[in-house]
């Protein structure tokens, strides 16, 4: 029992990070119906921004988090402005391929500039707690706490603010809504800012939890979070969170009870089964098909 409780803590930590990255995919998809394949690499860049900022200025954790989110967010918005906006009326696939290309450019640029893996500085001293045989560290509590706070904050922003309403409106109909006076480009820029910012925050938390960072770290995690977003129902904010936690749970629990070589096999087969029975994800809605 204790063993499974410990594995559950591991799963929640992993799931929280997947969920945070998945949010970025879902947010952008919800507004633009475009998969931002560069998101996994923005996540990696977030970890590197944290490394740079933390090694230059000894700032408190919260300030660094905000700076990382802002810098990654602006990078995301910049990419949207330069690479995606000119393609908004082009076939959807062009935008996806551009995103894939941007991701590869970012990843390999970082790996060219910093070929060696880098150790992540500890931003505060980590204390471990022992609760009746369960070990949990202050870092884990922080990661889970910050992730949940960001998710709740985002949900509030989307549902309760006028800007969030504008985002939902554009996601509902991106042709008519701008005619009603909602600034389309501004809303999309802000969407990318938030999405990439969340990715950057996830990168920073991930870097703290797994403190060796390298340019290649974004690829695998990025694809997995993308799967999480789709399982939850891409475009749905709450779905992304659910998908992230499910993926974390499935990955950890297959290792917990079966030989660890089967992890990917079982995790992805299960996700495939979910998608066969719920083709639009757990919380996603089938798109309106116009005939």
């Amino acid at each position: 029992m204790e063993y499974f409780a410990q594995q559950a803590i591991n799963a929640i930590q992993l799931g929280a990070i997947y969920a945070l990255i998945a949010l970025g995919y879902s947010l952008v998809y919800g507004v633009l119906t475009m998969i931002n394949f560069a998101h996994g690499d923005l996540f990696m860049v977030g970890a590197f921004f944290c490394l740079i900022i933390a090694s230059l200025f000894p700032l408190p954790f919260v300030v660094i988090l905000v700076l990382v989110m802002l810098s990654t967010g602006f990078l995301g918005a910049l990419i949207e402005r330069v690479a995606y906006r000119p393609l908004r009326s082009a076939p959807r696939v062009s935008a996806i391929i551009t995103a894939l290309g941007c991701g590869l450019v970012i990843e390999n640029l970082v790996s060219s500039l910093s070929p060696y893996a880098k150790p992540m500085p500890a931003l505060f001293s980590v204390t471990g707690y022992n609760l009746g045989g369960l070990s949990i560290s202050s870092l884990q509590i922080l990661i889970i706490g910050v992730s949940i706070l960001l998710m709740v904050g985002l949900d509030f922003f989307i549902r309760r603010t006028s800007f969030g309403m504008a985002m939902r409106a554009i996601s509902f109909d991106s042709r008519t809504v701008p005619l009603l006076g909602i600034p389309l480009n501004k809303v999309i820029s802000v969407t990318f800012l938030i999405g990439a910012g969340l990715g950057g925050a996830a990168g920073m938390l991930y870097g703290l939890a797994y403190p060796v960072i390298a340019a290649s770290m974004g690829v695998l995690v990025g694809w997995k979070a993308f799967i999480a977003a789709v399982v939850g129902g891409i475009g749905s904010i709450r779905g992304a969170v659910v998908g992230g936690f499910i993926l974390g749970l499935v990955e950890v629990m297959t290792v917990a009870v079966l030989p660890s070589t089967y992890r990917d096999l079982i995790a992805y087969s299960l996700l495939l089964v979910i998608l066969i029975f719920k083709p639009y994800g757990l919380l996603g809605k089938a798109p309106n098909q116009k005939v």
């Binding site: 591991n10 799963a11 991930y206 990955e251 290792v255 917990a256």
Partner: peptide, 8 residues
Amino acid sequence: RDFSAQLT
């Protein structure tokens, strides 16, 4: 990068 399940 996450080995927590195996290590547990």
